[in-house]
Design a protein around this nucleic acid. Structure first.
Lengths: 131, 131
DNA sequence: CTGAATCCTTTTTGATACTG
DNA sequence: CAGTATCAAAAAGGATTCAG
């Protein structure tokens, strides 16, 4: 019989592990961008499209659909003509947003160090090539 | 003239924005897996390969190289025969690891809610199809 | 053992055209 | 406005082979 496995990091290695699904969502560039954009408040489809800018309509549609499926974003359609659709974060998304904020904060405060590391690394590489 | 932009979320939308590079790294499944594995301590190439399991040699090599370039992982080669190489997290990676831990914690504690949302969503979809 | 190089398959994404 | 459908392009990943 299959015992319930303790939740280890290792679980993430298994594509079938549910935890992995969430890592995949975090790892989805567009999903993160959409979530962070919705943090400012509800927005409509083309609003998001314009604000994110670089996203194609296909990707936005796809991303919103999976976020909605995961219960992180809710969709409300109003029977106006033409139809109005509004997306917003769900309460469930709240905690995730806080973590994403930490990620961006970390990124902003350490981007300098990382870029410096890159320069050093690339420089050392160039030196090695020249030698 | 181009004014220095305030650091907004929007910066992440620009592929050229350095902050975006970091988001991309977080968004790299293999990078995250490698970082979390190295959290347990230094490890050698084939160690990592075995522990991560699903990763190919190519991906592991590629991932380690970019993590090293970003100053998140350091590489030490010992002139044994055959050569021994050890990878470990740098101090810079420390803060990032803490955030990644939060992500996995959040994932573990909310995976139930997300799976439930999926079932509800898929169920509602099936109902709509049947109607 | 630790990789680099190559080829080939799969996945992802973008462009475009069309619908309610 | 808010999408869907389809096709082509591009990127990522895997398998294999070879080398220090």
């Amino acid at each position: 019989m299959t015992m319930p496995q303790p939740l280890r990091i290792g679980d993430a290695y298994n594509p079938d592990c549910p935890t992995r699904h969430i890592l995949d969502r975090i790892g989805d560039k567009w999903a993160v961008l959409v979530l962070l954009t919705l943090k400012d408040g509800p927005a409509r489809f083309n609003d998001l499209r314009r604000r994110i800018g670089a996203i194609s309509q296909k990707m936005l549609s796809q991303t919103l659909k999976s976020l909605e499926r995961d219960g992180l974003v809710s969709r409300a359609a109003f029977p106006t003509v033409p139809v109005t659709v509004e997306y917003r974060l769900t309460p469930l998304a709240g905690g995730l947003i806080r973590i994403l904020d930490q990620v961006t904060q970390w990124a902003e405060s350490h981007v300098g160090a990382i870029m410096a590391a890159r320069r050093a690394h690339d420089g050392a590489l160039a030196d090695a090539m020249a030698a």
